[in-house]
């Protein structure tokens, strides 16, 4: 059973309200749902409240929001060009959503929504579906040129095309698993090292308290690392999204 030291305990979903079942699945408002909506609330509050004054000389909060805006905008422009700006609201929402959810996970006791593969997969599927739908809508069957690089000798073209198709199919998997695994592994490691402190203290008494300094130091260092990972993974997800969107905009290599 889930003891407080169990490192898996933190990923458990808890039903806050249940809305009944559809087949085998229970539809419930869980702690994960709560954190998702909290993230939406925080982002909305930040972006709307901080820009309420529409100040020409921005305050601290408005600067923060503008910096995020410019940062995502320059990422989109850099990877997908000026045409990529049509996806800017989507990419910005993705970046802020993942970033805030990752950072929420760093609050002790909070739930890390991005440590659930189904959520990260849904995010990745959203990106890939956007690429596919926009690609076919904009370029029709020319979009399939994405899989046939130009300037490749005809006798290895089937092989290259196969590799391109496989790499395209693996994109949603790698995109979702990268974020999921990073968050999951990081939080398990943190919990394990933090759990050592308690185990040493209860198991070895006073001596345990002293030796416990080592895992405590490790936990502090890991927290810093996890903070970096939380931001970095949000950025990685965003820039990969931009690169994939660039394929939808310009399928020819």
């Amino acid at each position: 059973m889930a003891s407080p030291i169990d490192p898996i305990h933190q990923f458990e979903l808890k039903n806050l309200f249940s809305f009944g079942r559809i087949g085998n699945s229970e539809i419930a408002f869980t702690n994960a749902s709560l954190f998702m909506f909290s993230a939406v609330g925080i982002i909305a509050l930040l972006t709307l409240l901080a820009t309420r004054d529409r100040a020409v000389v921005p305050g601290r909060m408005q600067s923060l929001v503008e910096m995020s805006y410019e940062f995502v905008a320059s990422t989109v422009r850099g990877s997908a060009g000026q045409e990529g700006m049509r996806f800017f609201p989507f990419v910005f929402s993705l970046f802020m959503f993942i970033l805030v959810l990752n950072l929420f996970g760093m609050i002790p006791g909070a739930f890390t929504v991005t440590s659930h593969i189904i959520v990260t997969f849904a995010l990745a599927a959203l990106v890939i579906l956007t690429v596919l739908i926009y690609g076919f809508w904009k370029h029709g069957l020319h979009f399939l040129k994405l899989f046939v690089p130009s300037g490749v000798p005809i006798y290895i073209l089937p092989l290259v095309t196969m590799i391109e198709v496989i790499s395209f199919i693996s994109r949603p998997i790698s995109l979702s698993v990268r974020l999921f695994a990073n968050m999951l592994a990081g939080h398990i490691t943190l919990k394990v090292f933090a759990g050592f402190i308690g185990m040493l203290a209860t198991g070895l008494g006073a001596f345990g308290w002293i030796v416990g300094i080592l895992p405590l130091g490790m936990t502090v260092a890991l927290t810093a690392l996890e903070l970096l990972v939380a931001v970095l993974q949000a950025y990685v997800f965003t820039i990969l999204t931009c690169i994939y969107l660039n394929d939808a905009l310009h399928p020819g290599h």
């Binding site: 994960a32 998702m36 982002i43 189904i118 995010l123």
Partner: peptide, 17 residues
């Protein structure tokens, strides 16, 4: 359940943004 709430939350966020 996760997908439902994700769709609602992300949809709301996208709309607001």
């Amino acid at each position: 359940s996760q997908l439902l709430w994700f769709a609602l939350a992300f949809g709301l966020l996208y709309w607001l943004m």
